[in-house]
């Protein structure tokens, strides 16, 4: 099966999951106390007025009909209307989504670039000091709340040393004209890196720790395989064995963990965006809840789900790329 067909196949496969996500979100949001009627009208409003507002928001219809209508909208890319921002939910989300995706990608890039070498070295020098240090680092990493790391980073690097900004994020592809203090593309890129470093570390530490753990145990397994023994017997240099024989296969469990970690990271983005006051999806959902902007709450939750599904499909594709034995959806 070709790559494109595989991706298409996986997208079709995720339709039931997506349906359940929308259903759960719809039912949850529907249960929230306080509807548009109570927001716009005072408790003593005349019944005709209440009926009118209800009719305008379709609240006089039965639940299943409203769900069906909403579903129809979602399929067409219409997630409803944000009362607070006075604009379509889809528009608002598209404005914020890139920020969260950028932050998450940075966090994983940071996590992988540290954890993979650390895990490999750890496995190679098992029970030596390097190994112990890497294990302690990953133990602390999985046990520390990400938002606390964020607070500590702000206190130390922003307030105490004054090295990095404490709030905000600049997207690297943002228009220089729209960013204060930036004139050229280079300025924007520099500002982007400058702003992204602290939130990236805060969000990526947990992933880094988890990937290090898996990388280490996976490499330990892989180095025990028969073909590694055979390669040693042939007299290949240890470095080649490590790189060519053991490493590649050992990355499969790592990819699985990265896929699962996506959910944690996207959820963690809510916390990190709050700590660093970054206007992404995470902060959007909290603000939407506080503003009682329920169509926006629904929309953000669903888009969070979609982002996760797309992320998992990407890791699955990478899976097949790393392990040639795996074919896209093939029988073998």
């Amino acid at each position: 099966m070709s790559l494109l067909r595989y991706v298409g196949f996986r997208l079709v496969q995720s339709i039931p999951v997506l349906f359940i996500i929308i259903l759960v979100t719809f039912l949850l949001t529907n249960r929230i106390p306080g509807d548009p009627v109570s927001i716009f009208l005072s408790p003593g409003a005349p019944p005709e007025l209440v009926a009118e507002v209800q009719a305008r928001y379709g609240l006089d219809r039965p639940l299943y009909e409203r769900f069906f209508n909403y579903l129809l909208g979602v399929v067409q890319g219409d997630l409803g209307y944000s009362i607070h921002y006075g604009m379509p939910v889809t528009e608002k989300i598209l404005e914020r989504l890139p920020v969260t995706v950028f932050l998450t990608v940075c966090a994983f890039a940071f996590a992988i670039s540290i954890s993979v070498p650390l895990g490999v070295i750890s496995a190679k020098r098992r029970n030596k000091p390097t190994d112990h240090i890497s294990r302690i680092v990953s133990l602390i990493g999985v046990s520390t709340p990400s938002f606390w790391i964020g607070l500590l980073l702000i206190i130390f690097f922003s307030f105490y040393l004054g090295l990095f900004p404490a709030t905000g994020l600049v997207l690297p592809w943002a228009d220089p004209a729209s960013i204060r203090g930036a004139e050229t593309r280079i300025d924007v890129l520099l500002m982007s890196v400058h702003h992204a470093i602290l939130p990236t570390i805060a969000l990526g530490t947990l992933q880094m720790a988890q990937i290090t753990r898996i990388e280490r145990s996976s490499m330990v397994e892989s180095l025990r395989e028969d073909y590694v023994l055979l390669a040693r017997a042939y007299g290949f240099p240890e470095r080649t064995i490590l790189r060519k024989h053991a490493f590649r296969v050992a990355q499969l469990p790592v990819l699985t963990i990265i896929g699962l970690g996506l959910s944690t990271a996207l959820g963690g983005a809510v916390l990190i965006e709050t700590v660093f006051e970054i206007n992404g999806m995470g902060r959007l959902i909290i603000q939407a809840i506080n503003n009682q902007d329920y169509e926006l709450v629904m929309g953000t939750t669903i888009v969070f789900g979609i982002t996760y599904i797309v992320g998992v499909i990407i890791t699955d594709v990478l899976y097949a790329y790393v392990d040639p034995r795996v074919q896209y959806g093939g029988d073998s």
Binding site: S14, V17, L18, I21, V24, T25, L28, T29, N30, R31, I32, L262, S263, T264, A265, L266, G267, G268, V270, L271, I285, I286, I289, V297, T300, T301, F304, G305, Y308, I309
Partner: peptide, 15 residues
């Protein structure tokens, strides 16, 4: 599992 769990809990608690 497909809704990032922190988001799901927040939605749940809002409801």
């Amino acid at each position: 599992y497909a809704i990032p769990f922190l988001v799901l809990i927040i939605a749940f608690m809002t409801a």
